[in-house]
Amino acid sequence: MKILIVDDSKAMRMIVMRQLRQAGYEDAEFSEAANGYEGLDQVDAHDPDLILCDWNMPEMDGYTFLVELRGKGCKTPFGFVTSESTPDMMATARNGGANFLISKPFTAETFRDTLEAAGV
């Protein structure tokens, strides 16, 4: 499985990868991007099976990235991994085409359960 992780924090990208490996995705092939613009390039370059994305990022935020992707017809499962998980933001994420939202802080079990529920 090819997983794209989009987050402006290198530390957070590392954390997400470690937690995914612990959650059973140890054979996944990871690519990384630091904002939505880089994310769009990575999608074109790697055609990921799953995209995990922060919400607040410089240059292009996660929501704009999602809308751009869906506007291009990209149907790749997309989940936000974000500190901000108010009901309003969850609704906004779903309306924009996100498949799920994982709240920080998280555990490996959080990823396993959420990805299983999303059918990924």
């Binding site: 530390a11 974000t82 108010t86």
Partner: peptide
């Protein structure tokens, strides 16, 4: 790297704080 990661730890706490407080003050922005 330590600063970046400490910011992420603080950001996660900030999200948790907002989640607890926004019910009472929906104007809060993180």
């Amino acid at each position: 790297f330590i600063a970046d990661a400490m910011n992420e730890l603080a950001n996660m706490i900030g999200g948790g704080v907002k989640r607890r407080m926004v019910e009472f003050d929906s104007t809060l922005k993180l």
